[in-house]
Computed example of a mutant assay.
Amino acid sequence: MSLRLDHVGLCNSIISINKNIQSIALINRQGRAVEKVSRPGFTNQFPDYMSEMFFMQCVLQVSMGGDFDEHFGPINYYVSKRDSLTMLTFPMDDHIILVTINKNASPISLARKIVNTINDCQKQSHDA
């Protein structure tokens, strides 16, 4: 199975966790989306050039947070709650997963389920 299929499978596994998950973007360390999956009817929140800036901000946040791994342990996820939606950011190997969820969903409960899904997909990928 190719790496791209792993990315698609991971994104599809995450979006299937809960109907409140609106979109997933798998971002490389340069801030570029290598995979995107959205629910039908979910529209992109901003133009492509702004998406790239936002993705780079996510990469920077995770990268800077990693400076404290030795003292506090690795980052599991970040939660960013906005007026219209909530964003969850998960570091994963050389990528970052950005998950956009409905503003009324429970971010902590979903974040835990997403972490478990990411861990399961990584385990399956390493076992293959």
Rank of each mutant, 00 (worst) to 15 (best):
N18L: 09
I118N: 02
L5K: 03
H95D: 08
T100K: 02
M64Q: 06
Y77P: 02
V37W: 05
I15R: 03
E70L: 06
F54R: 00
P74A: 15
K113S: 15
I101Y: 03
G41M: 07
L110K: 02
H126A: 15
S80D: 12
T117D: 02
L60S: 10
I24S: 08
T86R: 00
S23H: 01
N119L: 07
N28W: 02
N12C: 12
D83T: 08
Q122V: 10
C11Q: 06
F72M: 12
F46E: 15
I97Y: 02
Q124V: 14
I21V: 15
N102M: 10
Q122F: 05
Y78E: 08
P47Y: 05
M92N: 07
V99H: 01
C11H: 02
M1Y: 05
N104L: 11
F90T: 08
M1A: 14
P47W: 02
V59S: 07
R32G: 13
D69W: 00
D48W: 00
I96D: 09
C58H: 06
G66E: 12
G65N: 04
P47T: 04
Q122W: 01
C121F: 08
M53Q: 05
S109E: 05
L60C: 12
V59N: 04
S13M: 06
I14G: 05
M56C: 10
H71N: 10
Q30D: 15
T89E: 10
L60M: 12
S125A: 14
M92F: 10
F55Y: 12
S38F: 05
N116V: 04
T117V: 13
V79Y: 00
T117K: 03
Q22I: 10
D67S: 08
F55M: 14
D93F: 03
D120L: 12
Y78A: 14
Q22R: 02
D6S: 07
Q57S: 12
D6Q: 03
G31T: 05
L3I: 13
P47I: 08
